[in-house]
Every structure is written in structure tokens, then in C-alpha cells.
């Protein structure tokens, strides 16, 4: 182990990626559009709402030049609904990710950060990819922009616990060829669970390796013994 870092993104890196997401702010001062490498930011004209990247919003917030409007899914009512869905209705699977926009829009944007999933207009009934880090950052940077920051914080904690427990129990159903459905799992959750889940799958693969080898040999033998018609080339390609 020469590298001290784990073979995945660290929480800091995930949070950095999250700062590219667009959030809605209410500016308190005028600001001309900035010509940046990643594109230009909209002209800020108080009290008109505008969508700007999170990092710029945090900067303006710190300088008291803007207020952040929390995304719709970060309201206590929607978080409660999602939490109830996670604990009552789907005990196995995660709550689904936000729906993609209709196809005409999808030509330009199909995934975050190009899809505005954390602006004020974001769907209130689904957690986007960067939900955990977005929620934590906003709660820390702009607690006074929330109506009930403590309630939101508590709901976020509960959601995190529930979903991490699901990820952990997911390994019990794993098999050498099986899988866990991870639709709707957020970036930070993946970063947290990757080392463990990868380790479990690797261990299972090692234990099952000799059995797998025996199965392959048996199949190869059967194939040679006259099942030439049903030869399956895909299997051969998988051999390493």
C-alpha cells in the first residue's frame, strides 16, 4: 500500500465536485456577469432570484451579499416524506433519484451538475446525487436561510443512518454473480461505502474462484462432448 489514500474519492473531493451544482440565491447587491472559464454567471439584480454555482453562492453568502434559497427537497416536509418512503414503503431499495427532464431538454443536460437538481425549482420528492454534501454545506454556511435548520439537520441525520444501514445489509444478498441495486445512492454515500463493498466482493470472488474454475472446466467439457451448436463465445471473453 504505497498510496495513503483509499482507491476512491475522499469526502473532500466529493464536496469539491458538489460545489459545481447550481443553487438559487437572492442577491442583495448588484453584480455584473463574470466571464469565467466554466461559462459566464448571470447578472445579479436584487431582488431577482438567480441560479449560480454553489462555490460562488458560498462566497457571496460569506460576504453577506446574498441569501441562499434552499432547494425544495431540503424542506422539512419533503425530507419527512422521503424518510417515510425509505423506512415504510421500500425497506430494501433506496428512494429513486429525481426524474430526468423530458427528452427535448435532455439533449443538453442529462446529469448533474448540468441538470439543476439543487435550485429552488428542483423536484421536492427526490434526493439528487449530491444530496448529503449539499445539505450539510448549506446547513453549515447558511442556517439562517432555513426555516427550521435543526429539524432539517435531524432529518438529514436520520436519512443518512437509514440509507447507510441499507447499504451495509446489501452485502448479505451479494453473491459471486449477484448484485445490489444501488439506484439513487448519493455521491458521498458511494465514497463512504466503496472500500467496504469492494472488499467484500473481492473476498467473495477469491473464495468462489476455484468453484468458478471447476464450473468453467465442466462447461468446456460438455461443449466438447457435442454441444457445439450452443457454443457461447461470450463466456470465453470473460476469462482472464
Amino acid at each position: 500500500m504505497a498510496l495513503p489514500l483509499p482507491p476512491s474519492l475522499t469526502p473532500q473531493e466529493v464536496a469539491f465536485l458538489c460545489e459545481m451544482e447550481l443553487v438559487t440565491i437572492i442577491p442583495r447587491q448588484k453584480l455584473q456577469g463574470l466571464e469565467l472559464l466554466g461559462g459566464s454567471t448571470p447578472v445579479l439584480n436584487p431582488p431577482q432570484r438567480s441560479d449560480i454555482p454553489l462555490w460562488l453562492a458560498l462566497l457571496l453568502k460569506r460576504q453577506r451579499r446574498a441569501n441562499i434559497v434552499p432547494p425544495a427537497w431540503l424542506h422539512p416536509t419533503s425530507l419527512t416524506a422521503i424518510l417515510e418512503f425509505e423506512t415504510e414503503h421500500s425497506k430494501e431499495a433506496f428512494s429513486p433519484p429525481p426524474k430526468l427532464p423530458p427528452l427535448s431538454d435532455a439533449l443538453h443536460a442529462t446529469s448533474p451538475p448540468f441538470l439543476p437538481s439543487s435550485t429552488a425549482e428542483a423536484p421536492p420528492d427526490a434526493l439528487p446525487y449530491h444530496w448529503l454534501e449539499m445539505g450539510e454545506i448549506l446547513l453549515e454556511a447558511a442556517p439562517e436561510d432555513f426555516e427550521e435548520p435543526d429539524h432539517v439537520r435531524r432529518l438529514m441525520r436520520d436519512l443518512r443512518e437509514v440509507r447507510m444501514a441499507k447499504l451495509r445489509t446489501g452485502v448479505e444478498v451479494l453473491d459471486a454473480g449477484g448484485g445490489v441495486k444501488m439506484n439513487g445512492v448519493g455521491a458521498m454515500e458511494i465514497a463512504e461505502a466503496r472500500a467496504f463493498i469492494g472488499g467484500v466482493i473481492d473476498g467473495l470472488r477469491k473464495i468462489g474462484a476455484s468453484r468458478e474454475q471447476a464450473r468453467r472446466e465442466r462447461e468446456a467439457e460438455e461443449r466438447e462432448n457435442g454441444f457445439l451448436g450452443t457454443q457461447d463465445d461470450e463466456d470465453d471473453d470473460m476469462e482472464l
Partner: peptide, 16 residues
């Protein structure tokens, strides 16, 4: 591995 990664996330939360 499991302990370190959950600790890393907790550290990050304390950092922000």
C-alpha cells in the same frame, strides 16, 4: 476499510 471511510466522512463534516 469500513471504519476509515466512515471516519473520513465524519471528519469532513466536522471540518466544514
Amino acid at each position: 476499510a469500513a471504519h476509515d471511510s466512515s471516519k473520513a466522512v465524519r471528519t469532513w463534516m466536522a471540518e466544514i
